[in-house]
């Protein structure tokens, strides 16, 4: 017989155990985060400071660092860009375009690779991993040859479009491999049932399988969006038309040779640069969570 006293003791024990467990868990996750929090804390403090600061305490609080939202972006004393917003538009275009293309390419290929056996499949899968190890430096020149051959170099928007295609092409092997794993986790019976019901294969893929691998698609979208949002080297090398410059190029111009670097404005600019990526991450992460139920109750 357990007495009330004993019961209470047991509960206490369990509570302490739970507490210790939580402390361990949280400290593992949170302690390494301290540098990150400090760094971004400084970034925020600097964005709202009127002077250059080297601690976490903002000085001379001001919103002036965000002036570029309403007027031209200055570097040194002169305007570098007439407005901030076309930069945002171009970056968004690049990021969304890349995401869309990557999702399209990889969900098709990932499914085919996951579900079918065909000759050349093993080498294909292996080569996908292997190509990843080729240093990006080498692509720049070779791709420039190709771009030029098809006459897309230095053509304003068309060049941006081809950067999107290149970017998506470069990213897709990685995500195909990733999505293949997600497709593998979808039970074959579901598709089978759909096929027996008279669905075409495409419909089965579209209506049955795709929704089930939503977590995978969400993950791929996050990564593709982020890599498109932050892309620098391709844009720098291929886009000659200032009208189609992206935020990353503007950022690199603002820190150009570390001359006339306005740290307050730079911090503000970076914060705003981070914001859409954060929002996108939070939104897709939410889907990641809800889709789980669908995946196994459907």
């Amino acid at each position: 017989m357990i007495t009330a006293e004993g019961y209470r003791k047991l509960i206490w024990k369990a509570k302490i155990k739970w507490l210790i467990g939580n402390i361990i868990v949280y400290s593992i996750v949170c302690i390494p985060l301290v540098p990150i929090i400090l760094m971004y804390g400084w970034l925020i403090a600097q964005a709202f400071s009127g002077v250059c600061i080297s601690s976490l305490i903002p000085q001379k609080l001001t919103l002036k660092n965000f002036y570029f939202l309403t007027g031209p972006i200055y570097w040194g004393g002169t305007p570098l860009y007439k407005s901030y917003w076309p930069l945002v538009r171009n970056t968004l275009l690049l990021a969304l375009g890349t995401t869309g293309l990557v999702v399209a390419i990889t969900s098709l290929a990932g499914y085919a690779i996951s579900r079918f056996e065909f000759k050349g499949r093993d080498p294909l899968l292996k080569s996908v991993v292997v190509v990843h190890s080729i240093p990006g430096v080498l692509f720049l020149i070779a791709l420039m040859y190709i771009l030029n051959t098809i006459g897309l170099y230095g053509k304003g928007f068309l060049t941006l479009l081809s950067v999107i295609i290149i970017k998506a092409g470069l990213e897709s092997p990685m995500y195909t491999w990733m999505l293949k794993g997600f497709f593998d986790s979808v039970p074959w019976e579901l598709e089978w049932a759909a096929l027996v019901d008279g669905c075409s294969r495409f419909t089965a893929w579209r209506k049955v399988v795709m929704p089930l691998i939503f977590p995978g698609i969400a993950a791929v979208s996050i990564f593709a969006f982020l890599s498109g949002w932050g892309e620098y080297l391709l844009v720098l090398t291929y886009i000659t038309d200032r009208k189609w410059y992206t935020l990353s190029l503007a950022l690199s111009e603002l820190t150009y040779q570390f001359k006339h670097v306005d740290y307050g404005m730079l911090a503000a600019f970076s914060l705003l640069y981070l914001l859409p990526a954060m929002i996108f991450f939070l939104l897709t992460q939410k889907y990641l969570m809800t889709m789980r139920i669908v995946a196994y109750k459907g």
Partner: peptide
């Protein structure tokens, strides 16, 4: 999200 921050940040920053 916090763990993800470094990944979202442009290299220069």
């Amino acid at each position: 999200l916090l763990w993800f921050l470094p990944r979202m940040t442009p290299v220069i920053i």
